[in-house]
Amino acid sequence: MATVFIPTALRAFTDRQSQVEITSDTVGEAISALAALYPDLAPHILDDEGALRGFVNVFIGQTNIRETQGLDTPVATTDEVSIVPAIAGGSDLARRV
């Protein structure tokens, strides 16, 4: 079974679990299985069409699946799958002082 690591921001939706063991052939199947296990998590990572939301990334090991086959990327039983939220921000300053 692959290990899916849940980021702190989303653990409120996974009963505080930081990692979940999932059996699947692809990343898409792993994410779908995770969403089925924790329905409140689903809208935070998948859109209405079941695609990965733009502000969420998934890595297998150190590789972003957007650089491979996306949700069709194969998952091996020893793989570590990480859900990674996009982080950004900044002040209201309108122009450089």
């Binding site: 409120a12 996009a86 982080i87 921000g89």
Partner: peptide, 24 residues
């Protein structure tokens, strides 16, 4: 996460809020 606001108050902007996550 932490970040700085140069020449601006230490208060979150709307842009901060739009890009933030709960439980952090």
């Amino acid at each position: 996460f932490y970040h700085s606001h140069p020449n601006a108050p230490a208060r979150p902007s709307d842009y901060d809020r739009e890009h933030a996550w709960p439980n952090l």
